[in-house]
Amino acid sequence: MSRFARPHWVEKMSSGMAKPLIGEISAALDTLAATGVAGAIDLSGLPLTATDRAELEVALGSGEVEAKVTAAGTSEIRETGFAGVWWVRHFDAGGRVLAEILEIAFVPQLLGAQGDDIDAAARRLRTELARTPERETGRETVHAD
């Protein structure tokens, strides 16, 4: 789904935009393989027709991973048929596509746990562990009675 809605006869037209996009993806994938540096292409800013999009989807194909992330709305992450090329869609509560990005990376940014979240989780887990003996002692006391 594109922010650039058009008459249906335009949507049926191919602008030929898929081909240069695939070239850009190819260059980014070469960079990733050679240097490990990730890249991204914002599709939501491009006036792709439905046909352009279909051409791109056919060319990229489907890979082995599909994931759904629930953080401030839903996000859908699909690996394409080319390892390292990920199709990421961010939706709002009404299902509207807010942003659509092709990420060229080992793992999409959104999929990995974030450092600060991990820190917070570690603190929370330590707190839980510190509380556990008290609860167990309480239960043992009940059993002893």
Binding site: D42, S44, G45, V69, A71, A72, G73, S75, V88, H90, L98, A99, I101, Q109, L110, Q114, G115, D116, D117
Partner: peptide
């Protein structure tokens, strides 16, 4: 309860 993932998603949207 707002995670860093939400920040990241918001930033993707803003960048767009």
């Amino acid at each position: 309860g707002v995670s860093r993932r939400a920040f990241l998603k918001y930033s993707s949207y803003l960048a767009s």
